[in-house]
Design a protein around this nucleic acid. Structure first.
Length: 1133
RNA sequence: GGGCGUAUAGCUCAGUUGGUUAGAGCGCGUCGCUGAUAACGACGAGGUCCCAAGUUCGAAUCUUGGUACGCCCA
């Protein structure tokens, strides 16, 4: 006996039972054990940060991350799923600052770095429990107890090793980075912080003359006219930039006679603004201006460097600065088309400098000029303004320029400018800071080559967002002037400034003359609860110094920076194992990953950091070591599903304050995890923007989960009634092997089990559909296409429920329990359900196991206890019957058309009809269809189906060209062919085609010979018939009702009323009853009399009488317009 | 300002290499079924496939240019 199935399934509570079962029996562990010797399917967990609550977006990521490992495990792979947590970085520091009510670095330092770090370390676990609970409840099988943690000592040391490797190869270097700088607070602001502080302000807008020099370096009477809104950057001017493709005009001022150069199309605008009159003397392209030298507005640097030249890589030499350069970013939207370049104070300008440096022999090119200190005040390098806050010096600089006749025009300019978000009066400035960089640009080609080999889903990421990002690669600004992060493992000699990198704590301790480790020891003694991992963190690590190998008496001290936490997570392919200090075998076995998945916001995050680090470390044939043997591309991941962003109910970004989404826990409690998973997997491609709406999640239940459940429930109800128990039916001498998975072969010797070939068409059909689905799902899932796979599954379950079960019901109800047809139905449906539970297991693991456990356990203890231990079923081509599939589709279409025609004629299905006539466009399938009249007759409640030979009576033929076939052949003649076919007599044309196999058609001035394949026939029902037309057939109803048919209809009405009454009386399906009917209607009496056997059989009635029954309530009804009183009573068994 | 993506029914989304009646679910309407039953099913209405131009015998699909929205970066 199967466990009875509740008719109102509560998925959440079923899921909780399954969770309990998984936990108690360690099903996840067993699923891995079963694959211990199997080939690996490597999965990497992109580490989430546990210092915030998980939200629906995380559910999607975690659901997809669960799906494919589950699928691959069932397909026979060993798939280790090691968890991971991202624990470093500014977000953590910000959380702690919030808690402490502080903001700035000074405040952190005042609070104390040591206690601050302790708080950071604790803070990252704040929402750990919520994350664990969500992970488990969603059914995400991943091993969390030994998850990698980015602050762990082993992890940090692994990162250190990689950094040392890069450092030793010259790939880790110090340089400048232009940051948004809060001068008053002495700190850089992150992009997010800057974004918060934009305000509209008026800044001076100045048009300044840069007098051009001639070849001898003498000042000419022509000036380049440049524009800037930051006059304070002019003392640090290094270049002027023009666009190479723009046209520039040389104009003469009619009043002063001076000559100016500016963009041709801006001449009028600027002249008007400056209230001048200019005449254009000549024009040239920007390219022609490139290389010209000019006199900068301030000569503090120029005095010394103006004539200095340096050797170029290409030979020859060029002046270091104050040249006109070519730059694509120059526009004519504002200004003059000539742009002042102060690389110290603008990221774009800085890149121009770097690019220019590249032209020179290494180390000989222009240095960065910067006349401003970190406090935002001019330094002694601009003596006139030394000590003055830059913004405040603007006015005097302008006055100075005017006095020296360099200022053409000054006005005010309104624009958005960032201010410090916590000190609102302080404008930010762009400012160069020393920073450590990873020289990723050197590996750009190899990163691009690596990218080419990655299977991106969707495909456009490869050449699109990710590829484009790689093409514009710049060196990775690695260091952060912060506290909670992996310390940069570089120690500097305090005498020579020489540097070396350290790969592990042990390596550090082994250095000569080590001092400072006692600080950590003391801290640990004072507070034994401190986790040991903190010894490699600030502030303890900063205390560790050692003897310099570079200078006698020198000490090596660590640089103060920590690194970008994206480097941490990008290092996880090896750092999760502590490689190479330990975990060598694990790394070798688990590199690269077969599959990773995160949302698209990780393009520049984890997707990039992994690829960059892996390419730099494991794709350098010139620097191979035992630990960094080059690995074939792609690595470190082969397949990557890039998930779309998740939006709230209203299509807007999800936001806690707007309450535009439901908490996942609420969804789990109301609808269950399977509903949520199915919503993610089956409702849209995973890379589209997903609207997370409660109603859509809810819909998963009736659309899929409940439909499958109903089939399951139907099966269990009748199997139990009929005593269909596969365990009992298995032949005693055919015991199941251990770990049986209940494939069809296991039942071959069971009682009543017939080979598929001996079963009826409907059974063969559904098994064919099942196997077609299996093949399709495997094919799609191997291609990481869960969406298409789900559509296939959905179609199958729909066919199972709405055609197979629906059309097999009378077999299940048949009274002969041993009839072969009935047993066929049970065995077929049983096999379908068992296989379906395996099929859906990776998608909806809870429902799948609920089905499996009940359906499979009746076969005894040898059977695998969980569906997740089974193999994923592959399709058996031998069982697939494409022709049967096509024919059944046609049959269903005829049924559908028949219902449609009934609808039109307002003839309800309960009313039997004499016949329908079917006209097929293609008569090939007619004999087969004719053999299945019974099915159609039942479905349409008609007495007969006829396949009309006399088609012309009901329909006319419309003949159309088969465009796809004919198009390439007739080309431009197509419209003429179409018209000619449309005008031809379809019937005659078809007749000729049938006779001779070809037909000649005059189209335009040519004749085209057509064969059977060249045309498509459409049928058009003639008016006047109750008919419905489809693409390939027409169904015509016979609407004539005889007395007999009408009575039969009435009898069915009565049956329906009795069944209704049975339900009200809460009859068991097997209870027998008595029926009493009291009516004045002779029609009803006759109808009941004529169909007595039918009524009795349908309602399990022992007797039907035309008088009231004692001990029974009377119920009044209308039947066919007449009143009847119905009595129903349950007979004693 | 640049890059990438998206735009199809009232809503949420499919639509395979270009092929002439553009699909599904929900919602809506009508109806059916009543031994899966607080379910289920059928049928129907509903579309200028964002706009424009182009390529083609033929465009939701390819090209170009717009528009709107989203994300990333400046």
């Amino acid at each position: 006996m199967f466990q009875p199935v509740e008719n109102n399934a509560s998925f959440p509570s079923l899921e909780n039972e399954i969770l309990e079962f998984w936990k108690e029996q360690d099903i996840y562990g067993k699923s891995l054990e079963r694959r211990a010797d199997a080939p690996r399917f490597v999965f990497y967990e992109g580490p989430p940060t546990a210092n915030g609550m998980p939200h629906p977006g995380h559910c999607l990521t975690r659901a997809i991350k669960d799906l494919f490992p589950r699928y691959r495990t069932m397909r026979g792979f060993y798939c280790e799923r090691k968890g991971g947590w991202d624990t470093h970085g500014l977000p953590v520091e910000v959380e702690v600052c919030k808690e402490l009510g502080i903001h700035s670095k000074e405040e952190i330092e005042a609070f104390g770095i040591e206690p601050f770090i302790h708080k950071c370390q604790q803070s990252v676990w704040r929402y750990m429990r919520e994350w664990e609970r969500l992970t488990e409840r969603l059914g995400f099988w991943i091993h969390l107890p030994d998850a990698y943690v980015t602050y762990h000592k082993t992890y940090v040391e692994s990162v250190w090793w990689s950094l040392k490797t890069l450092f030793d190869r010259g790939l880790l270097y110090q340089g400048h980075k232009i940051v948004w700088w809060w001068a008053q607070g002495g700190t850089a602001l992150s992009a997010g912080e800057v974004g918060q502080g934009y305000r509209e302000v008026a800044d001076p807008s100045v048009f300044v003359r840069f007098p051009l020099l001639d070849d001898e370096g003498q000042r000419t009477d022509t000036s380049l006219l440049v524009w800037t809104t930051t006059p304070w950057t002019l003392p640090s001017n290094q270049f002027a930039a023009v666009h190479p493709e723009l046209t520039y005009a040389t104009v003469t001022d009619t009043e002063s006679g001076e000559k100016l150069i500016l963009a041709d199309e801006l001449v009028e605008t600027v002249a008007t603004k400056a209230k001048r009159e200019w005449t254009v003397e000549s024009t040239c392209t920007g390219r022609q201006l490139v290389g010209r030298r000019y006199l900068p507005p301030f000569d503090d640097y120029y005095r010394e460097l103006g004539d200095r030249r340096a050797p170029l890589k290409t030979g020859g030499e060029d002046y270091l600065a104050w040249r006109i350069l070519s730059a694509d970013f120059v526009t004519t939207e504002s200004g003059t088309g000539a742009v002042h370049q102060a690389p110290a104070f603008g990221e774009v300008d800085y890149e121009v400098l770097i690019a220019d440096q590249e032209r020179f022999v290494s180390g000989e090119g222009p240095e960065l000029i910067c006349a401003v200190g970190p406090d935002g005040k001019f330094t002694s390098e601009a003596p006139d303004y030394e000590g003055r806050w830059v913004k405040e010096a603007d006015k005097d600089i302008c006055r100075d320029l005017r006095e020296r006749n360099l200022l053409l025009h000054l006005d005010q300019y309104l624009h958005e400018y960032p201010f410090c978000w916590r000190a609102e009066e302080d404008p930010l400035i762009q400012y160069p800071r020393q920073s450590w960089f990873v020289r990723t640009t050197k590996f750009q080609d190899r990163m691009l080559a690596n990218n080419q080999e990655i299977n991106w889903l969707p495909d456009h990421i490869k050449g699109g967002r990710f590829g484009k990002f790689l093409e514009s690669n710049v060196d990775w600004a690695l260091s952060r002037e912060r506290f909670w992060g992996t310390p940069l493992p570089i120690w500097v000699c305090d005498q020579t400034g020489k540097q070396e990198a350290v790969a592990s704590y042990a390596e550090l301790l082994a250095k000569p003359g080590v001092q400072g480790t006692e600080v950590w020891t003391a801290a640990k003694q004072a507070n034994p609860e401190l986790v040991d991992d903190l010894c490699v963190h600030k502030p303890y690590i900063d205390e560790v110094t050692y003897d310099s190998p570079f200078a006698a008496g020198g000490r090596m001290r660590r640089v103060s920076e920590v690194i970008d936490c994206w480097y941490d997570s990008g290092a996880m392919p090896f750092a999760q194992w502590g490689y190479p200090h330990q975990g060598h075998d694990e790394f070798q076995a688990q590199f690269p990953a077969d599959f990773i998945s995160e949302a698209i916001d990780q393009t520049r995050g984890w997707f990039y950091s992994q690829l960059a680090i892996s390419t730099l470390l494991f794709a350098d044939p010139d620097n191979r070591t035992a630990e960094t043997e080059p690995v074939d591309f792609p690595h470190p991941y082969r397949n990557c599903i890039v998930l779309g962003l998740m939006m709230g109910e209203d299509g807007q970004k999800m936001s806690k304050s707007k309450r535009n989404y439901r908490e996942p826990t609420e969804i789990f409690d109301k609808y269950g995890a399977d509903a949520l998973r199915w919503f993610f997997f089956a409702k849209q491609a995973p890379w589209t923007t997903i609207r997370y709406s409660e109603s859509s999640i809810k819909e998963s239940i009736p659309e899929f989960l409940l439909r499958l459940w109903n089939v399951y429930s139907f099966f269990v109800i009748y199997a139990n009634i009929d005593g269909f128990d596969p365990g009992q039916l298995l032949a005693p001498d055919h015991a199941l092997a251990a770990n049986a998975q209940l494939n069809a072969a296991d039942f071959a010797a069971a009682r009543g089990f017939r080979p598929i070939a001996q079963r009826g068409e409907l059974d063969r059909w559904i098994l064919s559909e099942l196997n077609r689905t299996l093949s399709g799902v495997v094919e799609r899932m191997d291609a990481y296409d869960n969406f298409a796979a789900c559509q296939l599954i959905n179609e199958f379950v729909d066919g199972l429920s709405n055609w197979y079960v629906r059309r097999s019901r009378d077999r299940f109800w048949a009274s002969d329990k041993e009839s072969p047809e009935k047993l066929d139905a049970y065995w077929t449906l049983y096999e379908c359900l068992l296989t379906t539970s395996k099929l859906v297991a990776p998608f909806v693991p809870f429902l799948a196991d609920t089905l499996w456990r009940n359906l499979a356990s009746v076969c005894g203890p040898q059977v695998l206890e969980s569906v997740h231990l089974c193999d994923f079923p592959g399709g058996d081509d031998a069982v697939v019957d494409e022709q049967l599939s096509t024919r059944m589709r046609l049959l269903r279409e005829i049924a559908s058309l028949g219902r449609s025609a009934r609808m039109d004629a307002k003839l309800k299905v309960r009313q039997p009809l004499a016949k329908v006539e079917v006209i097929l466009a293609d008569a090939t399938h007619q004999p087969w269809l004719a053999a299945h009249d019974a099915l159609l007759c039942t479905e349409l409640n008609v007495k007969a189906i006829e396949y009309t030979a006399d088609a012309e009576k009901y329909i006319e033929y419309q003949v159309q060209p088969n465009f796809k076939r004919l198009g390439p052949r007739v080309g431009k003649l197509m419209p003429a062919v179409k018209q000619a076919l449309g005008e031809a007599d379809g019937g005659a044309l078809l007749a000729e085609l049938t006779d001779t196999g070809k037909v000649e058609l005059a189209a335009g001035d040519q004749t085209v010979e057509l064969d059977n394949e060249d045309i498509q026939v459409r049928l058009q029902a003639k008016p006047g018939w109750s008919a419905a037309q489809g693409t390939s057939c027409v169904v015509v109803l016979s609407t004539e009702l005889t007395e007999e048919l009408l009575r039969e209809g009435l009898a069915r009405d009565v049956v329906r009323l009795v069944q209704d009454r049975r339900k009200q009386l809460q009859c068991e399906f097997t209870d027998r009853i008595s029926i009493g009917i009291v009516t004045d209607s002779d029609d009803v009496k006759a109808a009941v009399q004529d169909n007595l056997d039918y009524i009795a059989a349908e309602t399990l009635a022992n007797r039907v009488i035309f008088e009231r029954l004692a001990d029974s309530d009377r119920v009044e009804h209308q039947v066919g317009g007449d009143k009847i009183v119905l009595h129903v009573s349950v007979d004693a068994p």
